[in-house]
C-alpha cells in the first residue's frame, strides 16, 4: 500500500468528529417554507436512479477511477 495515502481508519472518525462537533443549536437559515424551489423535481440530485446506476457502470468499466459520486440513493435498487 502506498504510505502517502490517507489512513482511512484515522480519517473517517476524525471527519465524523469534525462534523458532529458542529452540532450546536444552529438556526436553519433556509426555512421549510423557503424550500419550494429545492423540492421542484428539476432540482432532484438523482431523479432517475436506475439510469444513474447504469451510466456509473459504464464509466467504471471504461475508466480507472471509481467512487466519490454519492447521493445516487433514493431508489436505485442498490442502496
Amino acid at each position: 500500500m502506498n504510505d502517502s495515502l490517507p489512513n482511512t481508519r484515522i480519517l473517517l472518525p476524525l471527519l465524523g468528529l469534525l462534523l458532529l462537533s458542529a452540532c450546536g443549536p444552529i438556526e436553519p437559515w433556509v426555512k421549510p417554507y423557503e424550500r419550494d424551489r429545492l423540492a421542484d423535481p428539476i432540482m432532484a440530485l438523482d431523479s432517475d436512479p436506475v439510469s444513474t446506476s447504469y451510466i456509473q457502470h459504464v464509466y467504471e468499466a471504461r475508466e480507472g477511477a471509481r467512487g466519490g459520486e454519492g447521493a445516487a440513493g433514493g431508489g436505485c435498487g442498490c442502496n
Partner: peptide, 11 residues
C-alpha cells in the same frame, strides 16, 4: 459500482 451504490445515501 454495486459496492459504491450499496452505501450511498438518499439526499
Amino acid at each position: 459500482t454495486a459496492l459504491l451504490l450499496a452505501i450511498t445515501g438518499n439526499a
